[in-house]
Design a protein around this nucleic acid. Structure first.
Lengths: 218, 218
DNA sequence: CCAATTAATTAGACAAGCCTAATTAAATAA
DNA sequence: TTATTTAATTAGGCTTGTCTAATTAATTGG
């Protein structure tokens, strides 16, 4: 199946929305993810249905077909492998790699992704802690929990980040939080669900619920 | 300056034509290089003139401005570095890398190319033997001569290939010719300028003038 | 159950890049 | 120097992916 860059971005968005939100995937949701007008999404949905990459109805929303799923998964795999490459080989920092990988993920050539995988020695997780599906599409197992689900006094280690937003990643860097950082929950504020955290037994910071919902820990 | 992929491909084509042919660069020539209809070239020429990336007149043809030159050179640099990456790190063969590098060369991010350059340890030549300009745009010096200019009895070593055509590269692979291959000129046929060659003191083959014009040796 | 709001859809446009089919200009040969 | 040929240009169209401004359908609060 031949897919354009735009099509691939929509498929990826639908794939990721299916994984995170359990809701029905409707145009508005996709529009926000792809950063595009809802009317454009409706057009693209028609195109993807025509190409049998998704199914769509107002009731069921957009759902990937097997082919669509396969393509989306390959893009995700490619994206995450390139992120590993950028950090481990080119020495990019955590917060810069996403935008570059968004371009690299669309490079097409038989075996390219597999050769990259092999060159990187088959990593299981990308620098954000997200799992990298293998050649067959299988994900490595991992038991991630949200920082926001822990109770007061709990100590944990950051293993992943659920957000690709550059501002968020920059904010994390500024706070000195990255994969492996140890965090202790000091307080939970019932009023606005904000949390007080101690980072690496040193600085104490306060973060929002939204923040705590975007960090995976173990 | 923000450039689209298409614009970059035209700039690259003009750049390379300026280097090889000494003629005036007119639409037909560009059209053949970019594999596009001459009418499309005329459109694009207008656009590039508007953006001050080239100048154009029927008499003088297309010429890169300083900005245009800078952009084209960066694309060439990027292309050749990615080719080194594909061969040295991903273990691609010689003949496959061009099409992939044509995609990779357009990936944009500050420092990406320089980081790649550094990761590859600042190579001077790509796998086809073409020189890689450095960060400042300076080319490494090299004294390449065409196979076709040698006389009978001469022995030489392949250092570069002037053609990105996949068929040609496949043909070379089939003949067992790559960078470093030793070649002896046995005969030159005055009728059609074809040559008899001995490869690595073994097989004897006959090749066309066009072929001999596409191999650089030393 | 109806009015108000929100979300999906349609209609109509537009920019980029490409095309084909004229048309115009230049170069060449007779 | 005129006719022929070749090359550049213009005109008009098409596709992709986007937009804005209606319009239609659903949902929800009163």
């Amino acid at each position: 199946m031949n897919t354009t860059r735009a099509e691939e971005n929509y498929l990826k968005a639908i794939y990721r929305l299916t994984k995170t939100k359990k809701q029905v995937i409707l145009p508005n949701l996709i529009a926000e993810k792809v950063q595009v007008n809802p009317a454009s999404v409706v057009d693209m949905i028609k195109k993807l249905v025509r190409k049998e990459l998704i199914s769509y109805s107002r009731k069921e929303g957009a759902k990937l077909t097997d082919t669509g799923q396969r393509i989306a998964l390959n893009i995700v795999r490619s994206h995450r492998l390139w992120e590993v490459f950028l950090v481990e080989k080119l020495e990019y920092s955590w917060s810069e790699i996403h935008v570059i990988a968004e371009q690299l993920e669309h490079i097409k050539h038989p075996d390219l992704v597999d050769k990259l995988d092999s060159f990187l020695d088959f990593p299981s997780f990308d620098p954000h802690g997200d799992p990298i599906p293998d050649k067959m599409g299988a994900y490595p197992i991992s038991k991630k929990i949200f920082l926001s689900t822990l109770s007061i006094g709990a100590e944990c280690k950051v293993i992943s980040v659920s957000d690709d937003n550059t501002d968020f990643l920059n904010y994390l860097e500024k706070l000195g939080i990255s994969i492996g950082t140890k965090i202790k929950i000091l307080e939970k504020n019932a009023f606005d669900d904000s949390l007080s955290l101690q980072i690496e037994k040193k600085n104490i910071i306060t973060v929002s619920r939204k923040f705590a919902d975007s960090l995976y820990v173990i």
